[in-house]
Computed example of a mutant assay.
Amino acid sequence: MTATTHVETTTDSDTELPQITNPQKMAPNDARAMSRLFFERLAVLEEGTREYQYARNTLIEMNMSLVRFAAGRFRSRSEDMEDIVQVGTIGLIKAIDRFEVSREVQFTSFAVPYIMGEIKRFFRDTSWSVHVPRRLQEARTELAKATEELSTRLGRTPKVSELASLMDLTEDEVIDAQMAANGYTAASLDAALGIDADDGEVTLSEFIGEDDPALELVEDFHALAPLIADLNERDRRILHMRFVEELTQAQIGTELGVSQMHVSRLITRILARLRSGMLSLETPS
């Protein structure tokens, strides 16, 4: 059955576009015909106007069936279908913004590669636990095939030189691919590695990593920000010149038209105020 689409002619003579109720429910044939009309108007409308936004948004909704069709090819993947549709919609929008009616190409033929490309890029960028360059992602696949082939043929784990010869790569490139392969999956820091007689379950986090002293700086900067915001404009300017621009006290004095000694007193006073504020935050109420 063909879906029924409610179309009302607009009363705005500037747009000459029909007002469409539920454009996503349009039959594919109707959507193709109506899309051409909307593209022709979109090409002459001024970007940013209400009419332009209506034409563009309606084109997106009318052609969402293309996104759902493309997304349906990935139903077997573990990712949420809603996420795939959202990513495919980005490809649809790019296609709409770049399509030209004068090319005499069907919009569906033009849009599907954009939609599929965006979805495939999504899988490529999210399937890896650690993002690595695309060339290394592709090399990992070839490395797995070459390793399996040589292992079967040689009856042992192949050497880097043997893999390089089969893959027509340098040994350094093979090593890069092997290292990149480690980024495909990640182990949880809470993963159990075994049972200790004294401490019980032993996790991965106990063997890697250490406290980062720089994290304390992040907390300090976060606490310091509102205290600096409470300073007057001149005091903030002095701090900026001294600790951001790294000017000397003499140079700051020249900028402010005061003596170096006076600048020294001002900086001491400002820092004392900030220090007091920081200490008060650390003191339990």
Rank of each mutant, 00 (worst) to 15 (best):
H222W: 06
F207D: 03
A192M: 14
L189E: 15
A191V: 12
L189R: 15
L215Y: 01
G209S: 07
A214S: 14
G194I: 13
V218I: 06
L215D: 08
D212E: 03
V202D: 06
D220H: 08
L217M: 04
L231T: 06
E219D: 15
T185C: 11
I228P: 00
V218G: 05
D235M: 04
D211S: 09
D190Y: 05
L231G: 05
E201L: 10
A187K: 12
E201V: 14
A223D: 14
I208N: 08
E206D: 10
D211W: 02
P226G: 00
E233V: 12
D198Y: 06
V218H: 12
D212K: 02
E210S: 13
I208H: 11
L224W: 05
L217K: 03
F207N: 02
L204F: 14
A214Q: 02
H222C: 02
L224C: 11
G200I: 12
E219L: 12
L204S: 02
D235I: 04
I228Q: 00
D220P: 00
I208V: 15
D220W: 00
V218Y: 09
E233H: 11
T203A: 02
D198A: 12
A229S: 11
D198N: 14
L224Y: 06
A223E: 07
A229D: 13
H222V: 04
D196G: 07
L204Q: 01
D211Y: 06
E206V: 02
E210N: 11
V202E: 13
N232E: 08
D230C: 01
S188D: 03
E233K: 14
P213I: 03
L215Q: 06
L189F: 15
V202S: 13
A186I: 07
S205H: 05
L217H: 02
E206P: 04
I228K: 06
E206I: 00
D199G: 06
I208A: 10
E216D: 11
E210L: 03
D212A: 01
P226Q: 06
D190H: 12
E219W: 09
L227T: 05
E206T: 07
L231R: 09
L224G: 09
S188T: 04
L189P: 04
D212G: 00
G209H: 11
A229I: 07
N232A: 13
V218D: 13
L193G: 15
G200L: 13
E233R: 11
L227D: 10
A225W: 07
V218A: 10
A186D: 05
S188L: 03
A187G: 03
V202C: 09
E206Q: 13
E210P: 00
D235E: 15
F207I: 09
G200E: 11
H222D: 04
